[in-house]
């Protein structure tokens, strides 16, 4: 059964998402304890299978993690970097190096940090753009944007950064941004920053993917809910079950039937 999940056309998750180059901005939101990382890794799989280019900015996991998950899903991330089809901005490593060198500029001058990050992205995407043929599309994947808040960067800078990333020089670039929001109640009259960040992405996205846990609690048959929304179209809600080597999706209420197949 799981063998079927590896094929691109048969992959139920990618078939449900239906990502096209026309989707210029894709927002992937994880709510509460849900983990939307599998959406990012599956979308990377689709990018490589379509022979498209990738600029990957990692804040959430180490490069080694993405390599292991990629191997399980059937692609070689470091191999793609070597062949020039992908570039990686390993922010975790960069921040670690800064801390080791006692360079705390990234927390003291957050404005400069975000500008430098954008310049790096701009430069890397230009390199990718120069190496590709006319037909190829480039994807900028950021996993995940909410960690900029953890670094103490103000919401003003982050929203500015999103706008810049959505308007890179090369118009054949699509942006896929992961972000997470907590389910805690708002603190008094102030709206939490993670919600603002997530809302700002939802306003501009051509495809809004939300991964949330079941409202009723835990279940052995269903891992959570995926909600897919496109402006002007009806929202699709799917249940999913996460396996080691793939994800199975089904309509709400069909989980038992799928497990019996």
């Amino acid at each position: 059964m799981l063998g079927q999940l590896t094929g691109l056309n048969l992959n139920p998750l990618l078939a449900a998402i239906k990502l096209t180059p026309k989707d210029k901005i894709v927002s992937v939101k994880e709510v509460g304890i849900a983990d939307s990382n599998f959406i990012i890794t599956h979308l990377i799989k689709k990018i490589f299978q379509n022979n498209e280019k990738l600029c990957f900015v990692t804040f959430h996991n180490t490069l080694n993690h993405y390599q292991i998950v990629g191997k399980k899903l059937g692609y070689d991330l470091t191999g793609k970097v070597t062949s020039g089809d992908a570039v990686i901005l390993d922010m975790l490593k960069l921040i670690e190096e800064n801390i080791l060198n006692e360079d705390y500029g990234f927390v003291e001058n957050t404005g400069a940090f975000i500008e430098n990050l954008f310049r790096d992205i701009e430069q890397k995407t230009e390199v990718l753009a120069n190496s590709k043929s006319n037909q190829e599309h480039t994807y900028l994947v950021i996993d995940d944007l909410s960690h900029l808040l953890d670094l103490g960067i103000s919401i003003e800078f982050i929203i500015r950064f999103i706008t810049w990333c959505c308007n890179l020089k090369d118009d054949s670039i699509s942006v896929i941004v992961n972000n997470h929001v907590s389910t805690y109640e708002a603190n008094g009259d102030l709206l939490p920053k993670d919600i603002i960040l997530s809302n700002s992405l939802s306003y501009i996205s051509d495809l809004d993917i939300q991964v949330s846990p079941l409202k009723t609690g835990r279940s052995n048959e269903v891992s959570g809910i995926i909600t897919l929304a496109r402006p002007g179209e009806e929202t699709t809600e799917l249940h999913y079950k996460a396996y080691d080597r793939g994800i199975k999706t089904f309509n709400p209420g069909e989980s038992l039937m799928n497990l019996l197949k």
């Binding site: 919401i155 929203i159 009259d189 102030l190 709206l191 920053k193 919600i195 603002i196 809302n199 700002s200 306003y203």
Partner: peptide, 10 residues
């Protein structure tokens, strides 16, 4: 004015 993009909307 997107009211849900402001910390202190009022």
């Amino acid at each position: 004015l997107h009211t849900d993009l402001l910390e202190n909307c009022d």
